[in-house]
């Protein structure tokens, strides 16, 4: 039971990742494929953030342990645990995955926009964004319009 509790996040991450992969693989529509890729990408973010979580921790913004917030945070943690897991008497979650994923999200939307822009140009050239119909147009030598 406690093993499942500790690994539930990873199972969901795998499910979300495979969901994104499934959408990307099985769809014939380019826009739907881009949505699948975006979901796939967010699942990687969820994985990194899950790894960086420290139980009983707080956001990585330096806090004085004698302040009101610091005392409230430490009230339900054993002093032994705080000494082992904390820095200067306060337990923080790992900030490094946060940094990596923060920038990845913004880069993700920029690259998603490039993918969608290509889909728009494909639609203007072929009149469709369905992979099957585009292959059909190429085969019948109708080809792209522009």
């Amino acid at each position: 039971m406690s093993f499942l509790l500790g690994h539930f996040n990873y199972l969901i991450v795998v499910f979300l990742m495979m969901g994104g992969l499934w959408i990307t693989f099985s769809s014939r529509n380019y826009i739907k494929r881009m949505i699948g890729l975006a979901l796939f990408q967010t699942s990687v973010g969820l994985f990194y953030i899950s790894l960086g979580k420290v139980a009983g921790g707080t956001a990585a913004i330096v806090l004085d342990k004698t302040s009101k917030a610091g005392e409230a945070l430490n009230a339900h943690l054993s002093p032994d645990y705080v000494a082992r897991a904390g820095v200067d008497g306060v337990v923080y979650s790992n900030p490094l995955p946060h940094v990596l994923i923060l920038t990845a999200i913004v880069v993700g939307v920029a690259t998603l926009a490039v993918g969608l822009a290509i889909a728009v140009r494909v639609r203007e050239a072929y009149g469709t964004v369905e992979a099957g119909e585009i292959a059909e147009l190429d085969r019948t030598e109708a080809g792209p319009r522009a």
């Binding site: 406690s2 500790g6 795998v14 420290v54 923080y92």
Partner: peptide, 23 residues
């Protein structure tokens, strides 16, 4: 994924080296 550390483990490898140094 079954080999990964449990969620929230403060002594997981990801949390004890460089992340801790930054803190």
């Amino acid at each position: 994924a079954l080999d990964l550390p449990s969620l929230g483990d403060p002594s997981a490898p990801a949390n004890i080296y460089v992340g801790r140094l930054y803190l």
